[in-house]
Design a protein around this nucleic acid. Structure first.
Length: 417
RNA sequence: GUGGGCGUAGCUCAGUCGGUUAGAGCGUCAGGUUGUGGCCCUGAAGGCCGGGGGUUCGAAUCCCCUCGUUCACCCCA
């Protein structure tokens, strides 16, 4: 074991996986850019107060933040998510609404690491601030859905729910608390602790012993106001109109406190895994106001990059693949010709690599093969003296030819096309 | 944060009733004659057996601690 390794829950992303990450973000960019979303790049570090507004009762804020006091005595935190940052940016810059933005980048949560759960983890997401329209919720959900489809994922389940308007939610939470307290002896000790902090979250318990009590708990739908009911119906109608399959899950409560009305989650195919939530989001109409801005409705989602790629692996789609070069230059005369020829090729837009340390012909040819290049350009002492180069196809047979160096680029363009 | 599994070469893993110089495959490097890759053959390099302590004549192997990882709870993406 080396003396220094990555900190727990942090890791290096190496080729070719790193290229897959870039393609992932590029694919997301293309999906949402086509719907009029622009990229916002918020800082990794914010005043800790920005995140406190996300939810005083959530573990994300109370236990898992990477926070510290900086040299200027400011209490700051590495962002645990980006929705709060986007809303803070909105309040600070007051762009015209509807403000449709997307983001991609790392977030930090001090949790015990697990497969698909890291302390530094990347998310992509979108947020729309301004419009209060259930069809916007549908657009947002549909863009996430389209993204998964573009990646090639076929086993994603969309779960939707509505938490109702704030008053509905408050009434529901009160009813829940009353119900669970009346049945507290049937709850697991862990759920009793959860109950004292946030009764909603008890619904999310995955412990089998809690299943019975939860099954007969009050139902959120019974507390929906007329407005909430109409909004939720419009969302479901919109999803049907787009032929997006969904499952209404009344126990879907989500982890952050700011959600109201529509909430949704994309669940991966491997349902036996505890880390099967690929992404999720919802409407958060109070967050901008909480951050000191004008009352502004908002809706959005975040998708976990790691988990989604794990789901891709499970389904055998969106695989990583090695990136090669077009041409590999072999030079057995010391390497100066390889230096100038690769430079010349790159300038002409032909990707090229070479070997170093003046290795043997055999060794350099092996390297050429491994490089993935479809053509080798070989320069030995004869070619160097004659001002020529050998062009040797590496993949699909074909004879090698000796040509003047001046014709190298035109010849290669022909061979590569 | 709580509980269980695991931790041996760069990678994937053998090896434990404790017993001489710790193995394989893949990968890397070098050869297999005269300047040419993929297949094959030969050889080489590469391990404080995660770290520390203990038991023992002797520990990769047993015990304790610790770190890391993984699974479940929790949390959530």
């Amino acid at each position: 074991m080396p003396e220094f390794q990555t900190s727990p829950g942090m890791r290096d992303v190496l080729p070719p996986e790193s290229a897959r990450w870039r393609r992932f973000v590029r694919t997301f960019d293309e999906t949402v850019s086509a719907a009029g979303y622009g990229q916002v790049v918020p800082p990794l570090l914010e005043d800790i107060g920005v995140f406190h507004r996300v939810g005083e009762a959530t573990d994300v804020v109370t236990k898992e933040m990477y926070d510290f006091v900086d040299k200027g005595e400011r209490h700051v935190a590495l962002r645990p998510e980006q929705t709060a940052s986007v809303c803070r940016a909105f309040v600070q810059h007051r762009p015209a609404t509807p403000w449709k933005v997307w983001y991609a980048g790392p977030n930090f949560r001090y949790e015990k690491p697990q497969r698909g759960r890291y302390r530094q983890f990347d998310q992509v997401g979108i947020e729309v601030l301004g419009p209060d329209d259930p069809y916007l919720d549908v657009e947002v959900i549909a863009l996430g859905w389209r993204f998964f489809r573009t990646l090639g994922l076929g086993q994603v389940t969309l779960m939707v729910n509505s938490l109702g308007e704030p008053a509905d939610r408050t009434a529901f939470v009160a009813a829940l608390r009353e119900y669970f307290e009346a049945n507290i002896d049937r709850l697991t000790p862990e759920s009793r602790v959860t109950l004292s902090k946030n009764p909603l979250r008890v619904l999310d318990s995955k412990r089998p012993a809690d299943a019975d009590v939860i099954a007969s708990a009050p139902r959120i739908a019974d507390f929906h106001s007329e407005t909430a009911r109409a909004s939720f119906a419009a969302v479901l109608d919109g999803l049907r109109a787009l032929d997006i399959p969904f499952v209404v899950n009344e126990r879907l409560v989500r982890g952050l406190d700011y959600y109201r009305l529509t909430t949704f989650e994309y669940v991966g195919g491997t349902l036996d895994s505890a880390q099967n939530a690929l992404g999720g989001g919802g409407r958060y109409d109070g967050l901008v106001e909480d951050l000191g801005g004008p009352a502004t409705p908002g809706v959005g989602f975040a998708i976990g990059l790691d988990r989604t790629l794990l789901a891709c692996d499970d389904e055998g789609v969106f695989a990583a693949h090695e990136q090669g070069v077009d041409v590999f230059v072999v030079d057995t005369t010391g390497g100066l010709h390889a230096l100038t020829v690769t430079d010349q090729l790159r300038a002409a837009g032909i990707s090229a690599d070479r070997a170093f340390e003046n290795r043997s012909m055999k060794s350099q040819m092996k390297a050429a093969d491994r490089s993935g290049a479809s053509v080798a350009v070989i320069i030995g002492s004869d070619e160097a003296a004659a001002g020529t180069a050998v062009v040797r196809p590496l993949r699909d047979g074909g004879e090698q030819t000796s040509i003047p160096r001046t014709e190298l680029i035109t010849t290669l363009r022909k061979v590569l096309s």
